[in-house]
Design a protein around this nucleic acid. Structure first.
Length: 878
RNA sequence: GGGCGGUUAGCUCAGCGGUAGAGCAUCGGCCUUACAAGCCGAGGGUCGCUGGUUCGAAACCAGCACCGCCCACCA
């Protein structure tokens, strides 16, 4: 007689799955066993490298995070069970404007680089009373300390959430984008791009946010529909005549440098080459033709200003127009003098008097004031002596460029900025994008679309504080002017540097800001300049060439679709510029979680669902089930019902595990036809689920596994064989049940890491020698091929159909399914009866049929049973 | 204006050339020796609209409508 299987005593286990206790216990266990540790010694071919998104820690924490990070984790867990050495780091994106803004609001402070440094400054969150006062000004080092302190707290909150939802990251690989190593890598990136000629600095009109007072890049700009109005304004024409331009930005009249119309526009053709005279300021400006003008819009003729919009920049460049910048970095009108070289005027005295009334005003105030002046006949420049505003402003709605995080329209302001040269590499960028596999594939079009429409190089300098500084100084000439054409870039060996503190090679500290000395580049990088290096941050790149060679490019980049134009795009660009390679082989795109009205969840909309109470109520596994139920790239409305289903599944797994593993019997081969048919079904399931996971399609993998588990395993197979399993001869059934449970637990493990590992630990951990299911091998064909193939795998379905027919009859008779059947006549097609024969005993025993009669009925369809006659066993008296 | 997705049962979603599916919700029946956090059943849909291809279309093609997203549109 063979040895009995090892079993559990269900009475010793908690009645229900105690999620909080199990989760805490398993965390300890996973840590102790180093289940998620990456092995640096294993070669690239055996390693699966995840380029994890570093979350912006200053953002709100909501179920959307849980959603997408779970997707990545599910894939990582699958790969780990496939025996791959998973490289799964976690970073925090903490530098940049979102953090600065959060710190400003949290402590009610503003950074003032001129403020004195206060050693050891710590602040409490601002009180309501403090918020009514002007913000406290703090020095740059103090401001950065406050940023570091607050992000540290934010990172703790994220980290505990990540652990709670069971992300299988290797925490020894944790980083933050502001830490010394990341600053070092970002500066090395700059140095490499500089040496290769991919970066340049130039003073040029740049999109500028007047609130944050920094340049921004094209990728951070969005169009917003904005109300405005066309103002018809009459200009004089020197030599006689007039013209009426239409503008939505009358406040830029002092910055007018030209007038233009379409070359074929008969109304204005005669004016080209002549000089127009602006009203109010009487500035002579050239009139030139341009194909870019739409004759249908406004009056068909318009003023060119420096700068009202992107087209103005084009005209300014192409026509070599003068620069009359009147909007300052703070969005207010700067002081200018009419009658100077830069601002000529036919009536400088009046022009200066009028301008004095608007100087220092913001754009809106200046607009009002100018419009009032345009209503005044004395502003006329046509000689007609009538108000230049020829019609009441016509309200329109048009789209205006905003910084995505900003509140006021962007201005084009001429400033010195650093750029990464990308415009001349569009073809390469497209080709590299096509070397990557996108999941779902249509997302590749977003990348193509963006790349094709790129129209300015990547502006990477930001006039902010909490960021990675440029490792750059400029020599000062004898007059103390910076020589921007000769930047001094820090040596790789001295990085990371802060040029405002550190001294460039070849200089002494006392030469700082002295004529003949040097001055620091005060700007910091665009946060994407660092974030675009996450695959290299993971691998170590120039700081660890050996590991870089073994861990780069990464396998997958998980991310959401709205940042394809930033994160994915810049990362592809960086890898291409640095090493002529792709940064990863697969991009895996999660959708969004929408609120029930199908709007994206965001803090500003106030529709955010936070995750903690959900984890408490539905367990981590239940929440993960919800996340893993959504297909890749598909936006999903948040629906708590799905969480409920997840929790139900967890409970069911726990109970099924207890039941199966408490069935005592001998260790025996699987040699009964029904058991073999079940294993055949299981084999098919494993093949399908494995294929789905290989394609990153965890949602279908889960759905398939779940429906098999619930329907085929617990409701059907288990019901069919549980009586036999209790018999002396039930060894085959017990073996098949245990095999099925062990396989299903592993198929579920990537999605439900807690309950599966808990059930696994009872018996399978010891039997297999794999203490955690998360390092147990993925179910394989080989493991199932040890079980012989059934003569007819279809007997499983026939058994199911037969049991269903009897159940239906019981239901129609109002009899409990558990009630026995004293006598039963079952009709089916002869072929069906033949198929039933090998499994008939299990079916009849399961239905508790005492006496039966099989009726051959040629008229019935295959696998169909009819209960012709039945006599139910009387109910047991209570 | 260009591009991309979507539109299937009351709800959330699968299916993507071969007789319409799941879960939830609804209704009915069951304490039945793993699980009532459960089980057994039932009802419920002209698969957005209009054409076309096909022996056969929810699926393929064309057009339209609506929803959403990405991009463009600042005179």
């Amino acid at each position: 007689m063979s040895a009995p299987v090892s079993i559990i005593d269900p009475e010793t286990l908690p009645r229900h799955f105690e999620a909080a206790e199990v989760e805490a216990r398993l965390h300890d266990r996973w840590d102790r066993l180093a289940v998620y540790a990456h092995d640096p010694a294993r070669p690239r071919s055996e390693t699966f490298v995840v380029d994890t998104p570093p979350p912006t820690v200053s953002g709100s924490l909501h179920v959307g995070h849980v959603f997408s990070y779970t997707h990545t984790d599910v894939v990582a867990r699958y790969r780990r069970m496939r025996g791959e050495n998973v490289f799964y780091p976690m970073g925090w994106d903490d530098n940049g404007l979102p953090t600065e803004r959060r710190v400003q609001n949290h402590f009610h402070v503003r950074c003032d680089p001129r403020a004195p440094f206060t050693p050891g400054l710590t602040l409490a969150p601002a009180t309501a009373a403090e918020l009514k006062q002007p913000p406290r000004l703090v020095s740059r080092p103090n401001f950065i300390d406050l940023c570091l302190e607050l992000t540290r707290q934010d990172e703790e909150a994220f980290k505990s959430l990540w652990r709670r939802i069971g992300l299988s990251v290797d925490w020894s690989l944790e980083y933050s984008t502001i830490d010394a190593r990341c600053r070092h890598l970002a500066q090395l990136s700059f140095r490499d791009l500089f040496e290769k000629g991919h970066v340049y600095s130039i003073e040029a009109p740049t999109m500028w946010d007047v609130d944050f007072q920094t340049a921004v890049a094209q990728a951070e700009v969005e169009d917003r529909p904005t109300r405005g109005a066309f103002h018809d304004v009459a200009f004089g024409v020197e030599g006689g005549g007039e013209l009426t331009i239409a503008t939505t930005r009358p406040e830029l009249l002092p910055a007018c440098v030209a007038v233009t119309a379409h070359p074929n526009d008969a109304r204005y053709r005669a004016l080209f080459g002549k000089t127009a005279l602006t009203p109010i300021f009487k500035v002579p400006v050239p009139i030139f033709p341009s194909e870019l003008v739409d004759p249908e819009k406004g009056t068909g003729i318009l003023m060119v200003c420096t700068f009202g919009d992107a087209t103005d920049v084009t005209w300014w460049r192409e026509q070599k127009l003068p620069l009359r910048q009147i909007i300052g970095r703070d969005g207010r009108l700067v002081a200018v003098t009419f009658g100077s070289d830069a601002f000529p005027s036919r009536d400088a005295e009046t022009a200066n008097a009028r301008y004095a009334a608007i100087v220092r005003k913001g754009v809106g105030g200046a607009r009002q004031a100018i419009v009032e002046m345009l209503r005044d006949a004395t502003s006329d420049a046509t000689g007609a002596g009538v108000p230049p505003l020829r019609a009441e402003p016509k309200p329109i709605e048009h789209s205006v460029k905003f910084f995505e995080k900003g509140d006021r329209p962007l201005e084009f302001i001429s400033t010195r900025q650093w750029f990464v040269r990308l415009l001349d590499k569009k073809d390469d960028l497209l080709a590299f994008g096509d070397r990557i596999r996108w999941h779902p594939d249509f997302m590749r079009l977003r990348y193509r679309n963006w790349t094709e429409n790129l129209n300015v190089d990547w502006c990477v300098s930001r006039q902010r504080y909490f960021g990675v500084p440029f490792p750059v100084w400029y020599p000062l000439d004898r007059d103390g002017h910076p020589e921007y054409a000769r930047p001094v870039v820090a040596d790789a060996a001295t990085m990371p540097v802060d040029p405002t503190v550190d001294v460039p090679p070849g200089y002494d500290d006392d030469q700082r800001d002295q004529p003949g000395g040097f001055t620091a580049e005060a700007d910091v990088y665009d946060t994407w300049f660092t974030s675009s290096l996450t695959p290299q941050i993971g691998s170590g790149w120039l700081l660890d060439p050996e590991r870089h060679a073994a861990r780069f490019p990464a396998d997958i980049r998980p991310q959401s679709h709205e940042i394809i134009r930033t994160w994915a795009f810049y990362t592809i660009a960086k890898a291409m510029l640095h090493e002529r390679t792709v940064p990863w082989h697969h991009v895996v795109i999660s959708g969004w979680i929408l609120d029930p009205d199908r709007k994206k969840m965001s803090k500003s909309k106030g529709n955010v669902v936070t995750p903690m109470h959900l984890l408490d109520e539905y367990t981590s596994d239940g929440v993960r089930y919800w996340a893993a139920s959504a297909r890749l790239g598909t936006d999903t409305a948040f629906d708590e019902k799905v969480l409920k289903v997840g929790k139900r599944l967890v409970t069911k797994l726990y109970n099924a595990g207890k039941f199966v593993l408490s069935q005592a019997g001998p260790r025996a081969p699987i040699d009964v036809e029904l058991d073999r048919a079940f294993v055949a079904r299981l084999r098919e399931l494993v093949a399908r689920v494995t294929k789905a996971f290989d394609e990153f399609d965890y949602a279908h993998a889960l759905q398939d596994t779940e429906s098999f588990f619930w329907h085929d395993f617990t409701d059907t197979y288990l019901e069919l064989v549980k009586h036999r399993a209790r018999d002396d001869a039930g060894g085959s059934a017990i073996a098949a049940l245990r095999l099925g449970l062990g396989v299903l637990l592993r198929l579920f493990a990537p999605v439900l890491p807690y309950v599966t590992d808990e059930v696994w630990s009872w018996v399978f951990a010891g039997e297999t020698g794999h203490p955690s299911i998360h390092r147990a091998p993925w179910p394989s064909a080989a493991e199932l091929d040890a079980v012989a193939v059934p003569a007819d795998a279809g007997c499983f379905d026939v058994a199911v159909a037969c049991l269903a027919a009897i159940n239906k009859a019981k239901s129609e008779a109002g009899v409990s399914p558990g009630r026995g059947v004293a006598r039963l006549a079952l009709a089916a097609h002869p072929e069906t009866l033949r198929a039933l024969a090998p499994v008939q005993a299990d079916v009849l025993r399961s239905a508790r049929v005492e006496r039966h009669e099989m009726v051959a009925a040629d008229a019935l369809a295959a696998s169909t049973f009819e209960v012709r006659d039945a006599e139910w066993v009387a109910a047991v008296e209570a």
